[in-house]
Amino acid sequence: MRRALALCLTAFAVSVSPASAADAPPAPLTLSLQGSFFVGGRDVSSETLSTLPAYPASGTVTVDQIYVRYQVPVSPARPPLVFIHGCCLTGKTWETTPDGRMGWDEYFVRRGFPVYVIDQSWRGRSAGNVSTINAAKAGKAETGSLPPVFSVGREAAWAIFRFGPEFPKTFPGMQFPLEAQGEFWKQMVPDWSAALPTPNPTVTGLSELAKRLKSAVLVSHSQSGIYPFQTAALDRNGIRAIVAIEPAACPDPAKDDLAPYKELPILVLFGDYVDQSARWAPRLKLCRAFVAAANAAGGRAELILLPEIGIHGNSHMLMQDKNSLDIADWLAGWLDKRVPVKD
């Protein structure tokens, strides 16, 4: 990690939207450390790195690493948080909201948590392997060997992210800032998850990162919801707690070993309209079964639906909803109770 002198950054210096420009700015953000690094990765030698004459086809590249950006407050008093984005997105998920409000990365730094935001392997600033694409393009491999890469259109994403039951209908009282949806759609990127090797290099990278941080809370979302559980099953070292926000999957108590989760604080958090979604209702059911089985096996797991604690109208992208900081404040309180500061 690159060490830096303490610095002050005035929040929203360049990111305030016209709608929020009249709001009083927050106090300057004071950091003791800020920087970025990579975790994991492997070298690949290939004869099909390029099909362009200006760049050699032969050579060695590094793939499977995960990019990590960090901010550490002065005299941090709480455990480090590792934020892991979901399908078709990058670490931008946790940064400034589409309508220009404070993101969770900044909020939790202000609350005294060191914050580490990753780009999943083969996503964003974490490089993938293009060799198979170029091999097929050059006629050196069958087209059937091409990796399965996909993008999700906004019409399908609308229902997946529970802005409404179908595009362009909205759920009543839904909190996502649809007036800024154009900025949100720009966050969407091609997804390589189906092309990744096994074990998923994001999971092995998270394990390495947790060991480096020594007491990390892994905070996942959606597609990545299962990753902290897989990381704990791989190695509990360095993992202080798990927060799975709207996970696409929880461990299956009928198939998976629950021993890795014994005495580990776990929060599974869902927003609103889940029972109205054919995609999300079964996932909630599985997570309920996991929490019950984990606790019966000596776990410390909780499942919370925001409407049941009086927080309503939240989409799947609850960290970007209009009440996102209310949810962040509740989560910070949960962390203070379940993951107290060590002496």
Results as ranks from 00 to 15, higher is better:
Arg2Met: 13
Ala4Met: 15
Ala6His: 14
Thr10Glu: 15
Val14Met: 07
Val16Glu: 09
Asp23Lys: 13
Leu31Asp: 09
Leu33Thr: 11
Ser36Thr: 12
Glu47Ala: 15
Leu49Trp: 06
Ser50Thr: 09
Ser50Leu: 08
Ala57Val: 12
Arg69Tyr: 14
Pro76Gly: 06
Ile84Thr: 14
Ile84Ser: 06
Gly86Lys: 06
Gly86Phe: 11
Glu95Arg: 14
Met102His: 07
Gly103Glu: 03
Gln120His: 15
Arg125Gln: 12
Ala127Gln: 13
Thr132Met: 10
Gly139Trp: 15
Lys140Asn: 14
Pro147Trp: 15
Val152Gly: 02
Val152Tyr: 04
Arg154Ser: 08
Ala157Glu: 09
Ala159Trp: 01
Ile160Gly: 01
Phe163Tyr: 11
Phe163Trp: 09
Thr170Gln: 10
Pro177Trp: 02
Glu179Thr: 12
Glu179Cys: 07
Gly182Glu: 13
Trp185Val: 08
Lys186Thr: 05
Asp191Val: 07
Thr198Ile: 11
Pro201Tyr: 08
Val203Pro: 02
Gly205Asp: 05
Gly205Asn: 02
Ser207Glu: 09
Arg212Glu: 10
Ser215Cys: 04
Ser224Cys: 14
Ala233Lys: 07
Ile239Cys: 00
Arg240Glu: 09
Glu246Asn: 12
Asp252Lys: 07
Leu267Trp: 04
Leu267Tyr: 02
Phe270Gln: 02
Asp272Cys: 00
Tyr273Leu: 04
Gln276His: 06
Ala281Lys: 10
Lys285Trp: 05
Cys287His: 06
Cys287Met: 14
Leu305Thr: 15
Leu306Arg: 02
Pro307Ala: 03
Pro307Gly: 00
Glu308Tyr: 00
Glu308Phe: 03
Gly313Trp: 00
His316Cys: 07
His316Pro: 04
Leu318Cys: 00
Gln320Gly: 01
Leu325Ile: 04
Leu335Gln: 08
Asp336Phe: 04
Lys337Gln: 11
Arg338Thr: 06
Val339Pro: 00
Lys342Ile: 12
Asp343Trp: 13
